[in-house]
């Protein structure tokens, strides 16, 4: 590559045209990374410097690590773990509808969860498999959310000094972090209340129906339960739609259905789950 210094004037050392050998140390860290990931870049021209925002990632990492530490990759993890959690929440809500069939049916359903696929699989193995899966999904979902939030906060260190006028962003999409935190705290209480039992003075292990009634007979618990499930519904309304986008499920043939599916999932979960404390409070169940 020949360059005529006399016509182009003086230039700095780092402005040199560089043949892509991958070993020139004269380029800033950003362009170094650029050469590694970029397509064939024979020549780099001098130009305005882009700011350094995120530290260049170390080179030569295994591809799953590259994927899982990229923001788009983390959105995939959010979407896939979110899908698993939506599946769980739907199944959980549907199963709990048995409470309307009475104590015997509900307790039998609760007990049957311990013997799923028995005798093919030893007792409680499937239950524990699902529990481990849920813990992994929760961990991946929350971990990615925290990492992405950090990236996003770093991406706009100075906020707009005048009020923003949002057009498309809705309450659900703007409040994902808060509804997520509410749901996470609720899940912890929910486990303490109805699985481990230490948050429920009348807890008797294995007595699912009585535990549920005893829990919701406390009005603050019933109210917290309803509020948390409304937060969950709001979270799922944006989360379900967002999942389709993050996973690239997008086609003019069904794009209009995605909002409807998100609305249906959110409404179904909220209505079914809110009905339980209401049923206990008003004596339908108990």
């Amino acid at each position: 590559m020949v360059r005529d210094n006399t016509t182009l004037g003086a230039f700095r050392e780092q402005d040199r045209f560089v043949i892509n050998t991958g070993r020139s140390p004269t380029i800033s860290p950003i362009s170094h990374k650029r050469r590694r990931t970029g397509m064939t870049q024979a020549i780099e021209r001098p130009g305005a410097d882009a700011p350094v925002v995120n530290k260049p990632k170390p080179s030569k990492r295994p591809w799953p690590v590259e994927f899982a530490t990229s923001a788009v990759g983390m959105k995939w993890i959010m979407a896939l773990s979110g899908l698993a959690l939506i599946g769980f929440v739907l199944a959980h809500a549907f199963g709990n509808l048995k409470v309307y069939f009475g104590a015997e049916d509900f307790d039998h359903y609760a007990e049957s969860l311990r013997t799923l696929l028995y005798p093919i699989v030893p007792k409680t193995w499937v239950l524990w498999g699902m529990r481990i899966g849920l813990i992994v999904a929760f961990g991946a979902h929350i971990g990615s959310a925290i990492a992405l939030t950090r990236i996003n906060q770093k991406a706009r260190p100075v906020r707009y000094q005048s009020p923003r006028n949002y057009i498309a962003a809705n309450f659900a999409s703007r409040s994902m972090r808060w509804t997520g935190i509410i749901v996470a705290l609720f899940v912890l209480f929910h486990l303490a209340d109805l699985t481990w039992g230490f948050a429920n003075p009348d807890f008797v292990r294995g007595d699912a129906y009585a535990n549920l009634v005893a829990s919701f007979d406390r009005l603050p618990v019933a109210i917290f339960y309803m509020l948390a499930n409304i937060a969950l519904g709001i979270h799922l309304f944006h989360g379900t739609w967002s999942m389709f986008q993050s996973m690239g499920i997008n086609s003019p043939r069904y794009n209009s259905a995605r909002r409807w599916i998100a609305g249906l999932v959110a409404a179904a979960i909220t209505v079914v789950n809110v009905s339980f404390p209401l049923a206990v409070t008003f004596g339908v169940v108990g």
Binding site: T37, A71, K75, I151, A155, R156, I167, A169, S246
Partner: peptide, 21 residues
């Protein structure tokens, strides 16, 4: 390479849809 270069400078998408507006 375009995604990974983008992520050196910018935040991540949370699907608000403000950009297309």
């Amino acid at each position: 390479s375009m995604v990974e270069t983008m992520e050196e400078f910018f935040g991540s998408c949370t699907n608000h849809g403000e950009c297309q507006e």
